[in-house]
Amino acid sequence: MVIYGTGLLAFCLLAGAVVGQLLGYLLGVDANVGGVGIAMIALIVLSDRLQKRGALQPPTRQGVLFWSAVYIPVVVAMAASQNVQAAVTGGPAAITAGVASVAACLLLVPAISRLAPPLAESTFDAADANSSTDEGR
């Protein structure tokens, strides 16, 4: 059933968020530390286990894939509910701090990529990269 997949996904997010919240308490931080990242690892590990057991039927997969496929529309809705006005009218100090930190971090991407290279080639092949993405994956 489709809902099994969505349920699996929801369980992973909730479990990850709880662990992230606990990690925050332990570190004395008023924030969720890596909850979404932990949830992603949980989903990868759990779905791998279920796959090997043959318990991941196509309808179940659809229950996860739907949410993966609506990722971009959800992000568009997120963009539409940002406080853009505060950013634009934040004053020169806020704009300078934001622009300068983005510029500096962008310059660091190639530097760190070279500093700690991947063990093996992990690029997408070119034909794949040009395919349409609105089908999800």
């Binding site: 996904l9 997010l13 968020a17 992603m40 989903l43 779905s47 959800v74 809705a77 997120m78 539409a80």
Partner: peptide, 22 residues
């Protein structure tokens, strides 16, 4: 705001990890 809020955003982000190898 609900569709783009933390709940749906995080659910969709986690879903993108489906099928990625650890």
């Amino acid at each position: 705001g609900v569709l783009g809020g933390a709940a749906f955003r995080d659910l969709a982000i986690v879903a993108t990890a489906f099928g990625v190898r650890l």
